[in-house]
Nucleic acid binder design. Structure first.
Length: 479
RNA sequence: CGGGGUGUAGCGCAGUUGGCAGCGCACCGCGUUUGGGACGCGGGGGUCGGCGGUUCAAGUCCGCCCACCCCGACCA
């Protein structure tokens, strides 16, 4: 039950976020440092994310499987950059069944090593390829600074691990899955994302190339919301994934991996939420429509409930995710605030006047107050509701896109860069040298987010050193 | 892992010079209410973050530890 107001976003975005996650009952802190408990409402939201992604994975030919949680520690020493990247954040099991283990086991921080090991067993011939496997699960990374959904020690995600006969195929797969993520983010989560390539410094430990979808949160910080990596032959050489090609010659395979986590739930909160609470995109909302019946006397109650029950059944039958809030112990006004906190896209009020006029009152979560309220006839209600939900979905995307675009500015020199980063993201030419990237961070505290895949024509001069640059980069403070 | 802050009922907080642990909301019961966070009456709930020390006496003083938050170094 929620009754208090949130810290306004403008006052302290971080407090607003933390309070909202708790009050909307999405998640709670666990007794273990850095871990979270995802509560039913939050998990339901994640399940809807899973459904949207899983459908797309299947459509692009992937199958789900499960690999073990525990991985021999020695596996992590086989790929040099992978070890260096992940060693500091590994949780290691050294005792099992009361006995010191001969070889310590790592709680997976990601599964490239175990899939690499298994794939080397499974791949013998070009006919065995491609392998297109996804896994839904959780991983553990010993994080120093945690935040619910955005960075926790254990987090839930999916990780795809694929093997291909050629570099071209593997690179195509990398970008295909990046497209899948972008499509999901934009169309289901109503989060506008920019597809791009990570700098050498920002890429995944062990990857040849990392791609990302970057989203701008309500405080203009960037959130890396999903990544797809081209791993080249790094892991196939480390784990000996070889096959005989059509000419009977031994070849190392080409692999990819891609992941999207419960961080997406954080992205949804921070992209759409307002001072009254969560605003969920209709396609992912656990509850799309909540009915609040209104009555005074028992007589009114029976009349109102008859209509409310009928409408509930009608909408539910049409496939909508709908909830009847028939609590007796709280007033309608309380319920309005309660469901607004929880971000339900559409509220339907049904009272004696509505029964009389064959109407209902609809209140859109994305438009506060009177502006979002309308009175519609009960006839064709399913269609009215579905149209309204579609409109809310589109409005959320449009609003987030406009916000993002108004907080990205071109920056040609350091002064402009500093200003741009104050206001959001900078979009600048960059020579792609590490020294300039380090300077960007030292001088602005912002980092390169990605080099967008959609690049303008031509070339320019690096925002830092002024030397010729082939690509533009997005720079911003990030989570 | 460094710097700062906060830990007292489910939540938000007060607690003076060391002297009976409180307030608001929430919760439970009964009644009246119900179109934007209802009201009355009655009630329950506490190792004061933990451990140790000083003291006749510690929420309060001292030491150590833990958790969480904010700011920095690393990351989905």
């Amino acid at each position: 039950m929620t009754e208090e107001q949130l810290t306004p976003r403008s006052e302290n975005f971080s407090d607003w976020y933390n309070e909202l996650v708790l009050k909307a009952e999405l998640a709670d802190y666990s007794p273990v440092r850095g871990c979270m408990v995802v509560r039913p409402y939050g998990w339901s939201l994640w399940e809807n994310c899973q459904a949207g992604l899983d459908r797309r994975f299947k459509e692009t030919g992937h199958s789900n499987a499960a690999f073990p949680l525990l991985i021999p520690k020695s596996f992590f020493e086989k790929e040099k950059e992978h070890v260096e990247g992940f060693s500091p954040e590994l949780a290691v099991v050294t005792v099992g069944g009361g006995e010191e283990l001969e070889e310590p086991l790592v709680v997976r921080p990601t599964s490239e090593t175990i899939t690499g090991y298994m794939y080397s067993k499974w791949v013998k011939s070009w006919r065995d390829l491609p392998i297109l496997i996804n896994q839904w699960g959780s991983v553990v990374r010993w994080e120093l600074r945690t935040k619910l959904f955005l960075r926790t020690t254990e987090f839930y995600w999916q990780e795809g691990h694929t093997v291909h006969a050629t570099e071209k195929e593997a690179r195509e797969e990398t970008l295909r899955m990046l497209d899948v993520y972008a499509d999901f983010a934009i169309n289901d989560a109503a989060i506008p994302v920019i597809k791009g390539i990570k700098s050498e410094a920002e890429k995944f430990a062990g990857a040849v190339m990392s791609t990302t979808i970057e989203a701008m949160m309500g405080d203009t910080k960037a959130l890396q919301s999903g990544t797809s990596h081209f791993l080249g032959q790094n892991f196939s050489r480390a784990f000996d994934i070889q096959f005989s090609d059509r000419n009977n010659e031994q070849q190392y395979a080409w692999t990819t991996s891609w992941g999207l986590s419960t961080r997406m739930v954080g992205a949804i909160i921070m992209t759409h939420g307002d001072d009254k609470g969560l605003i969920l995109p209709p396609r992912l909302a656990p509850i799309q429509v909540v009915i609040v019946p209104i009555y005074r006397s028992e007589t009114e109650k029976s009349v109102v409930m008859e209509t409310a029950d009928r409408i509930f059944a009608e909408l539910k039958g049409s496939g909508l995710r709908i909830k009847m809030d028939d609590r007796e112990e709280v007033t309608p006004g309380f319920k309005y605030n309660d469901w607004e906190m929880r971000g339900v896209p559409l509220r339907m009020e049904i009272g004696p006047k509505d029964v009389e006029k064959n109407s209902v009152a609809l209140a859109r979560r994305d438009r506060p107050g009177r502006e979002g309220k309308s009175f519609v006839l009960q006839a064709n209600l399913v269609e009215t509701v579905k149209t309204t939900l579609d409109d809310i979905q589109a409005s959320l995307l449009a609003k987030a896109t406009a916000f993002r675009d108004s907080h990205i500015s071109e920056a040609k020199d350091l002064d402009e860069l500093a200003k741009a980063v104050q206001n959001g993201w900078a979009y600048s030419w960059w020579c792609e040298n590490r020294e300039c990237e380090i300077k960007i961070k030292e001088l602005t505290k912002a980092t390169t987010r990605c080099m967008p895949i959609d690049q303008p024509a031509g070339s320019g001069n690096c925002v830092i050193c002024g030397k010729p640059a082939q690509r533009k980069v997005l720079i911003g403070k990030s989570y």
